[in-house]
Amino acid sequence: MVIGEAKPVAEILEMIKDFKKVVVAGCKGCVTVCNAGGEKEVAILASELRIARKAAGNDLETLEYTCERQCDPEYIEPLDDLVKDAEAIVSIACSVGPQYCTARYPFVPVFPGLNTMSIGGALEHGVWKEFCQACGSCIIGDFGGLCPITRCAKQLLNGPCGGSSEGLCEVGKGSIPCIWQLIYDRMKNLGQLHKMQEVKLYKNWSTSRDGGLRTTIREELKQ
């Protein structure tokens, strides 16, 4: 899922300082799962904004709604009734959400209430880690199902480097496992250690951000 993290409230207050009535829009997708932009977080942020503004003697009215998703135009539509009465939108979806709101409401200012952090998963309640950089040509099948692009600080294809010590990466002061140690352990478990002797010459980066803005097309689904 996409991992999001709430922006500091002070930053959001600064963005909306000129407005008296704003929509706080959440998303029931990824950011609900990572407790950053779901229904509860909408209510928390809206309350915080109202309290802070009221204490400053500059009342703010908030309208709350949590979209089924903010990354599909049809799920932005239910905001219409709220937005027509509001001066601005604070979206606490990943950064796709504010951009969809911007597309639908060309004359309404839209602000992000989250920082979009990574594509990843939960390690434990309240802890999320990056697992994918969306490079567009997945090679983890060559590495026992583990991603050296995301999880190796140097993105090595033929690791480990000399900074791997006792299973830990030199980056992170001993807090980050060396992915190449994990790949070695995994390949050993699978009886495929010999595959690590094959030199990987290069990776196709044209499918990553280096190739420019990416559009994914499924012809059979297009209408």
Binding site: K40, A43, I44, S47, E48, R50, I51, K54
Partner: peptide, 13 residues
């Protein structure tokens, strides 16, 4: 009681 309910109550004020 959730955090947002406590905050909403405080905001009433």
């Amino acid at each position: 009681m959730e955090a947002f309910q406590l905050l909403r109550t405080l905001a009433t004020p």
